[in-house]
């Protein structure tokens, strides 16, 4: 399957699914004024978020996968790519210009947004085609990192970010 929106383009490997979205302002969408017009987006966060997973993603998720990481099994992998504001592009934290090829040493139980037993995470930041991006990946089981990290790399190799 192929996902493309908001300047991201991803060929999903077999068994993977995903979303490219921007946070909706649900309250405003429900207001009478919103009917018939464009759906408002949350004012403070209108930048795209990419979620990719080799398990069924629930509908209600936080940007860093809360709501999804809790239901992960040991063989599951979750990847989030979050775009940051243009002021971040090219700064020291976002200095790298290519998505990485990860190895198990890049994952740690202390790098999770929310610590869950057995899981480990990775975070890194990039500027690709002038867009500041944060990568966050979660392994369902750190003990299976040797098997799961290549799956992360397989997906990242298929991510394209337009300017």
């Amino acid at each position: 399957m192929h996902l493309a929106a908001h300047g991201f383009s991803i060929d999903l490997p077999r068994g993977w699914e995903g979303t490219i979205s921007r946070r909706l302002d649900a309250v405003a969408a429900r207001s009478a004024g919103a009917v018939g017009g464009a759906i408002p987006l949350v004012e403070e966060q209108v930048l795209p978020v990419v979620h990719l997973a080799n398990f069924g993603l629930p509908g209600d998720r936080g940007d860093f996968g809360s709501g999804a990481v809790e239901i992960m099994g040991p063989d599951d992998v979750f990847i989030a790519m979050l775009e940051f504001g243009p002021e971040c592009a090219g700064t020291a934290l976002f200095a790298d210009t290519r998505l990485p090829r990860l190895d198990p040493s890049k994952f740690d139980r202390n790098r999770l947004q929310r610590t869950l037993a057995g899981q480990s995470g990775h975070q890194s930041w990039y500027t690709i085609n002038g867009r500041a991006l944060g990568l966050y990946a979660v392994l369902g089981s750190h003990g299976l990192a040797g098997k799961l990290v290549p799956r992360v790399n397989e997906v990242l190799a298929n991510v394209r970010v337009a300017a």
Binding site: M1, H2, L3, A4, A5, H6, L12, G15, W16, E17, G18, T19, I20, S21, R22, R23, L24, A29, I39, L41, P48, G56, L57
Partner: peptide, 15 residues
């Protein structure tokens, strides 16, 4: 498998 749009005009793919 299903692919299409989300409510925010984003992309969604469900396996």
């Amino acid at each position: 498998d299903i692919s299409g749009l989300g409510l925010d005009d984003g992309a969604v793919a469900v396996r």
